[in-house]
């Protein structure tokens, strides 16, 4: 491991994985933690619980399509929602920089309240710390969230049920969040109307899970993007994942900006998307349900799980070629969430 913490350690890609495995898991021996799912799932006497935590350091704090407050709620809610649980309670801890305008803080708090109401989650505990000017950047938010599993729903963060032939679905266009935040940065002289996809997905996910059986796995492709989730599926199951580039939804302006700046959209963060692996027999029905919802109207089947290419993700490129998709290895864009 490196001697100092580098920006890449926060990328969600290979460097983050190395830090987690070589340092945190070396000291923390919990069998639940070891699974490294978005939410920790554990049993109580009456039901299963999902428990998660997250921190938000996005720069700038206000961006097109959202702000750090909305992002904190959505990010936490989605980590619980993709496990299959219904998010219920959230905690919020603020680390504030001396001199941060109260009016900006109020704007953030108002946005948190609004998003929490929409998602039907309650902020039930919190904490505030203030540090000297220059010791943090405006505001950082740490959250925790708890959710409860409906009786019929199993932990969707586990990959044990994934089989060859299963179908991979995404609920809309990729790379919106990362490119929206980037183009909102002042030092970055680019004007665009790209909006972050930042949204709570719990209602949409429950709509699918309550209507249909056969969903096998879910994860939200945040830092590290769609590619990272697909690589995790392939490497954990030792099966192949075959994806068609043409079927991956993308907004035209996002694609153009990625093209212009040389970013691979597969690795750019999303904040209102889930990747779902489902049994082939229900794929069309799931797409039908998703298409009826604002947050799923651009849903698409993007590929399948296969016995070929074990442990690898293979992309059928837009021009008919094939290539391997690998884990993000450096930092693509720091401080995106």
């Amino acid at each position: 491991m490196k001697k100092e913490v580098l920006i890449a350690h926060g990328s969600g890609g290979e460097a983050s994985q190395t830090l987690i495995k070589a340092l945190f898991l070396k000291y923390f021996k919990s069998s639940i933690l070891k699974k490294l799912t978005d939410s920790a799932v554990f049993e109580t006497d009456t039901s299963s619980l999902a428990f998660t935590t997250d921190s938000f350091v996005v720069d700038p704090i206000f961006f097109q399509g959202g702000d750090i407050g909305k992002l904190a709620v959505c990010g936490t809610v989605n980590d619980i929602a993709v496990s299959g649980a219904v998010p219920k309670y959230l905690s919020l801890s603020f680390i504030l920089e001396e001199g941060f305008p109260i009016k900006d803080l109020e704007k953030v708090v108002r946005s948190i309240a609004k998003e929490a109401e929409k998602a039907e989650v309650e902020i039930v505990t919190g904490d505030t710390k203030v540090v000297d000017k220059g010791k943090c950047d405006k505001v950082f938010i740490n959250t925790a969230g708890i959710g409860f599993f409906p009786k019929s729903v199993a932990n969707m963060g586990k990959m044990v049920n994934i089989r060859p032939g299963d179908v991979v679905i995404i609920n809309g266009s990729i790379a919106d969040h990362g490119m929206a935040v980037l183009s909102s940065r002042q030092d970055f002289d680019i004007e665009s109307d790209i909006q972050s996809d930042c949204a709570c997905l719990n209602h949409l996910i429950q709509k699918v899970l309550s209507q249909i059986e056969g969903v096998k796995f879910m994860r939200d492709p945040t830092r590290g993007g769609l590619a990272t989730v697909l690589v995790e599926i392939a490497s954990s199951t030792n099966l192949g994942v075959e994806i068609d580039e043409k079927s991956i939804p993308m907004k035209e302006d996002v694609e153009s900006l990625c093209e212009l700046l040389g970013f691979d959209p597969l690795y750019i963060a999303n904040e209102g998307k889930f990747v779902m692996v489902v049994d082939k027999s229900i794929a069309e029905k799931v797409i039908g349900i998703l298409h009826n919802n604002k947050l799923g109207k651009d849903s698409s089947i993007i590929g399948k799980v296969t016995e070929k290419y074990n442990g690898k993700v293979v992309l059928n490129t837009a021009v008919g070629g094939k290539r391997i998709v690998d884990m993000l290895t450096g930092e693509q864009l720091p401080r995106i969430c």
């Binding site: 837009a318 021009v319 008919g320 070629g321 094939k322 290539r323």
Partner: peptide, 9 residues
């Protein structure tokens, strides 16, 4: 060439 898998064509 790599991104589009040109060699495979």
């Amino acid at each position: 060439i790599f991104r589009f898998g040109i060699k495979s064509l």
